[in-house]
Computed example of a mutant assay.
Amino acid sequence: MYKIIGLTGGIASGKTTVSDYLKERGYTVLDADAYSRKTTAKNGPAIPAIIEAFGKDIIDNNGELDRKKLGSIIFNDAGKRRELNEIVHPLIREMMNADEQKFIKEGHVFLDIPLLFENGLDERCDLVVTVFVDRDTQVKRLIKRNDLTAGEAEARINSQMPLTEKVQKSDCHLDNNGTVEELYEQLDRFTEELESL
């Protein structure tokens, strides 16, 4: 019987690297961030409610969502972050659920969801895997990847459940403090076990 596997982690923990490797190995990975981008794309289904909640200046001259401006608001204001999540998350869930039902007939399905535990979606999964790094590594990678200040990086990390807590709640965890090769080796072991279930 095929499994629904929740894949989570923290910002800049390496979850995308894991997702990409799983896809290369032929697994179906449904990425919540990709669905989020669809809902918030130009003329996407979430845009009217986002304009209503955050004002017209959240849209740039091309009619696109100004993600940097929105990010600076929501990562520093828990109330605004909650408001955005209430708009976007139901739309994401609807799209992901439809695809999950389609693909689970063909094989294991990984749900790549950063806020898996925060939104109680771990309860829908047969297994949960968390990709983790230590806090210093996470801050350094985020500063480098997103060209942020240390304060901005800390604010984004603090907006999520601590990785140590996610690891405790998981069935399996992947340590991404080392090399990519070491991460892939852990992932290979996990998928071998998965296929033997």
Rank of each mutant, 00 (worst) to 15 (best):
Ala153Leu: 01
Ile104Arg: 04
Glu193Cys: 06
Ile104Glu: 07
Val29Met: 09
Gly10Glu: 01
Leu148Asn: 02
Ile47Gly: 08
Gly71Trp: 12
Ala49His: 12
Ser13Asp: 03
Leu142Lys: 03
Arg25Ile: 07
Gly151Ile: 04
Thr16Pro: 07
Glu152Gln: 14
Glu106Leu: 12
Tyr2Lys: 04
Thr137Pro: 00
Leu183Asp: 08
Leu70Arg: 11
Pro114Leu: 08
Thr164Glu: 15
Thr16His: 06
Phe110Pro: 01
Glu165Trp: 01
Lys102Ile: 12
Asp99Tyr: 03
Arg156Glu: 08
Gln101Ser: 13
Glu86Cys: 01
Phe75Ile: 10
Leu148Glu: 03
Glu24His: 13
Gln160Tyr: 08
Asn61Asp: 15
Glu52Thr: 05
Ser159Gly: 05
Leu127Ser: 06
Val18Thr: 07
Asp126Glu: 07
Ile87Ser: 02
Ile113Arg: 00
Leu174Tyr: 03
Leu163Ile: 11
Leu22Pro: 00
Gln101Glu: 15
Ser159Cys: 12
Glu165Gln: 09
Thr16Arg: 05
Leu127Tyr: 06
Arg156Met: 13
Asn177Asp: 14
Glu86Ala: 03
Ser196Lys: 13
Val133Tyr: 06
Arg141Met: 01
Leu65Ser: 09
Val139Asn: 06
Thr17Ser: 15
Asp66Cys: 04
Ile74Phe: 10
Gly9Ile: 06
Tyr27Lys: 03
Gln160Asp: 09
Ile157His: 05
Asp126His: 11
Phe75Lys: 01
Leu30Lys: 09
Glu152Val: 02
Phe117Val: 04
Met161Thr: 11
Ala98Ser: 14
Cys125Met: 15
Tyr21Pro: 00
Asp66Tyr: 11
Asp171Lys: 05
Gly9Lys: 00
Ala98Phe: 12
Ser72Phe: 12
Asp122Asn: 10
Ile104Cys: 03
Leu163Gly: 02
Ile58Gly: 03
Tyr2Ala: 11
Gly6Ile: 00
Lys15Trp: 07
Asp175Asn: 15
Ala12Pro: 00
Asn61Phe: 10
Thr164Ala: 15
Ile4Val: 15
Tyr21Gly: 01
Ile59Gly: 11
Asp33Gln: 14
Glu86Asn: 14
Thr179Asp: 09
Ile92Asp: 04
Ala49Asp: 13
Glu165Ser: 11
Arg81Met: 12
Gly9Phe: 02
Lys105Ser: 10
Arg145His: 05
Leu115Tyr: 04
Asn119Glu: 05
Ile51Phe: 12
Leu183Tyr: 02
Thr164Tyr: 10
Ala98Asp: 06
Cys172Arg: 15
Val167Trp: 03
Glu182Met: 14
Asp188Ser: 08
Leu116Asp: 00
Thr40Ser: 09
Leu163Gln: 09
Lys169Ala: 13
Gln168Ser: 14
His108Leu: 10
Ile58Lys: 12
Asn176Trp: 10
Tyr184Ile: 12
Met96Phe: 09
Thr149Ile: 05
Arg25Val: 07
Gln168Glu: 15
Asp77Lys: 01
Val167Asn: 10
Gly44Asn: 13
Thr8Ile: 03
Ile5Thr: 04
